[in-house]
Write a protein that binds this DNA or RNA. Structure first.
Ligand SMILES: [Mn+2]
Ligand SMILES: [Mn+2]
Ligand SMILES: [Mn+2]
Ligand SMILES: [Mn+2]
Lengths: 218, 218
DNA sequence: ACAAATTTTTAGATTTGACTAAAATTTTTT
DNA sequence: AAAAAATTTTAGTCAAATCTAAAAATTTGT
């Protein structure tokens, strides 16, 4: 598989939300930062290779084989992200671009040993689950912070918006993965939240709360 | 720079033995596993980009800029090799192929932090010196262990005597290719050596030491 | 010195992945 | 149910990196 083919497969996977969804040519073109006509050409090739199911004008889905390939790339991407944060002191808003390159390195042993070196992590620095070698990954029970009931507590496991400005905000406010967040109160008027994090009470807007994923403890 | 251009530059560097030597089209073709005609084309391109000095039919040398690029690639290659051996439990004969891929990853921060993570190593698992960020590095030389000065360290790169008894001895004493050996002291009386290998102190006879090749710096 | 052998370069073709412009198809409006 | 709009595909180019075959330059052998 070429680097370009791998990028297409990964994008089709993400646009298909994991598995089923059929994906449009235009959507792929936008993500790939290329033209729809180029996408048509590539899809034809991927289809001939058995990586995608394709009928002209009817969108595209990953084949079983294509899904396997996609999960292997996602696995590599997320393991490298963990490596960069845990071992090389990168912060979570710096890792994606480098992982985009590292995910294409071809060596089964490399990724197995990297996994071991990192202690077989289950989630990446953005809270996304890391597929196992065989392509399974446990569905984490995510809930957006603004949907967490008052009086409940949860673990911060990820973000919906992973843009640098948002990640910077979290960093500045010392909100990080693994942190426990307790919802003290919710303001009806604007949906802003009063939360307790590391024994400190802070107030966050609905906009922030609706972009933070928690895993609810019970 | 494309991946292919980087490979050409690296090969021209190695064939030119570090710096001066002018390199022939045929030699490059052989190393690149391609045809001389393809090499001619690529050299023309590298010349236009100012990476090499080139006169038709007269061979090619790296420009000052090209040398800088070459050293940066060699640095990345060797740092990744150290990483694979030191952190991921690869053996010295498994790392080259993977490093050939990793050396093309583009991120200055990545390589700086990797260097730091590894403790700023001076030599790679094959005993070759690692250029500094600014492109300086020490020359490495091959020496029989009994000719290595006290206080020096080197990588075991080969044997002079490859008879079964000798290899058995090495195996029994856990001395293997790729191991780093530090010469602690030398006994004047019989020429026997006190060495440190994998943090263990052992004593070996002159007969053993005069049949083991090390690669040392400077 | 000069013919033969070798090395190197050019000419022309191929493959991959992309592009523009135009045609075909599907979807949305009226 | 057309007409209009949007999406998707095809047709025809292009650039990068490669190839084969042939021409040009250099080196070698007598
Ligand atoms: Mn990422
Ligand atoms: Mn991630
Ligand atoms: Mn190597
Ligand atoms: Mn090496």
């Amino acid at each position: 598989m070429t680097l370009s083919e791998e990028d297409y497969i990964k994008i089709i996977y993400h646009l298909g939300k994991g598995e089923q969804g059929t994906v449009s040519t235009n959507a792929i073109a936008e993500k790939m930062e290329t033209k729809p006509s180029s996408v048509s050409d590539m899809i034809k090739k991927l289809s001939e290779k058995g990586l995608v199911n394709y009928k002209k004008y009817q969108g595209v889905t990953l084949s079983e084989y294509g899904l396997k390939v996609a999960l292997s790339i996602v696995r590599k991407h997320r393991l490298w992200e963990v490596f960069l944060v845990e071992k090389l002191e990168f912060s979570w808003d710096e890792v994606h671009e480098v992982a985009e390159q590292l995910e294409h390195i071809k060596s089964e042993k490399l990724i197995d040993m990297l996994d071991k070196h990192l202690g077989f992590p289950q989630i990446d620095p953005h809270g996304d689950p890391i597929p196992s070698k065989s392509g399974e990954f446990k569905k984490s029970i995510k809930r957006l912070l603004n949907e967490v009931p008052i009086g409940k507590e949860g673990i911060c496991i990820g973000v919906k918006d992973s843009s640098p400005p948002f990640l910077k905000f979290l960093d500045k406010n010392k909100i990080a993965l693994g942190d426990s967040i307790f919802v003290v109160d919710k303001e009806e008027f604007d949906g802003s939240l009063h939360i307790k994090i590391r024994d400190i009470d802070i107030r966050i807007s609905d906009q922030i709360a609706s972009n933070l994923y928690l895993r609810i403890i019970e």
